[in-house]
């Protein structure tokens, strides 16, 4: 049987990935991490982030600096200082980014940098999912579907999900306006949000799916046994990334998980590296795509 012909574009893409993966693994991860620091929330660009962005950008253009221990120590110091200064305002992936930069710095002092990166990536991914799962039990708003139901009804980023999954449309502006009024006037008494039975049911189902995938991800990255689960961790992480971030696009978090996942599989399971690197490089296209398509269809339908 003759193999199916490969499209030239596909061939070029494959060659490009192979070329990138041919670099020393730790260097590729350092470069991708520096790119993440530069591009992270570029749309908001707070001036307090300027020194770390500037340094990361310089490191990308000066190859000598990319391998420099001093440059990575300086980047770590800047990120740690930012974390300490804004600790209450920062969200989870900003903490995780700082941890990861610290790992990159430590790996430069190691005799086996790839191993240090892979080990830490595995633990950090596992712990991050473990704490996310624990919070979903502790918070008391997840198991009955309350959190996701409320988020679908009120968060503009989930409009696509609310319309496609819950069959909601006109209810969403009403809910947002009600919540804004409550916040502005200090109305503390119970008010009714508009929803649908389908949205309520789907919220419960999706809540349990999220707990399941996060718990499984935590176990697969943290435990060496059972082996089938441990081996499946690369696939599980990708399933989480695709099912979560196509609905709620958080580019920086998705990119960071992919970089850490890549650091892990480059060392332990190289056959997954191409998939991870490809997914990471195409992330600015595939992640916002469902939302963009939905917005386009919605606009056409409204006209």
């Amino acid at each position: 049987m003759t193999p199916a012909p490969i499209h030239p574009l596909q061939q070029r893409w494959k060659s490009f990935l192979i070329e990138l993966l041919a670099r020393p693994s730790y260097l590729l991860i350092l470069q991708l991490t520096a790119i993440l620091i530069v591009l992270h929330e570029i749309d908001t660009f707070p001036w307090t982030r300027l020194p770390e962005r500037g340094l990361a950008l310089t490191m990308l253009f000066v190859p000598r600096l990319m391998r420099s221990k001093k440059a990575w120590v300086a980047l770590s110091v800047l990120l740690v200082m930012n974390n300490l200064w804004h600790w209450a305002a920062l969200v989870n992936h900003e903490y995780l980014t700082t941890y990861w930069v610290l790992v990159c710095t430590l790996s430069l002092y190691a005799s086996k940098p790839n191993q240090v990166m892979a080990w830490n990536a595995r633990l950090l991914i596992g712990l991050c999912f473990a704490f996310a799962t624990i919070w979903k039990f502790l918070g008391g708003e997840y198991l009955d579907g309350s959190f996701l139901h409320f988020t679908f009804l009120s968060d503009i980023r989930l409009s696509m999900g609310a319309t496609l999954i819950g069959g909601l449309d006109g209810e969403l502006p009403h809910n947002r306006s009600l919540l804004e009024t409550m916040q502005a006037t200090g109305e503390i008494n119970p008010q009714l949000l508009q929803t649908s039975p389908r949205m309520a049911l789907m919220s419960v189902a999706l809540s349990y799916w999220t707990i399941f995938i996060e718990a499984i991800a935590a176990l697969s990255f943290l435990l060496p046994r059972p082996q089938f689960l441990s081996r499946a961790r690369y696939g599980i992480l990708l399933v989480f990334i695709f099912t979560t971030y196509t609905v709620i696009p958080v580019l920086a978090f998705g990119a960071l998980l992919l970089i850490m996942g890549l650091a892990e599989c480059l060392h332990n399971r190289p056959q997954w590296s191409g998939i991870y690197l490809g997914t990471l490089l195409l992330l600015p296209i595939w992640m916002p795509l469902p939302q963009l398509l939905f917005a386009a269809v919605e606009t056409v339908l409204l006209q």
């Binding site: 209450a88 996310a132 919070w135």
Partner: peptide
């Protein structure tokens, strides 16, 4: 607020600081 402080409590509670009064 569960959303902040590095405990990975985002998307676990509706208690975001932006909604507090």
């Amino acid at each position: 607020s569960p959303w902040h402080g590095g405990g990975f409590g985002m998307f676990a509670s509706i208690d975001r600081d932006e909604r507090r009064i």
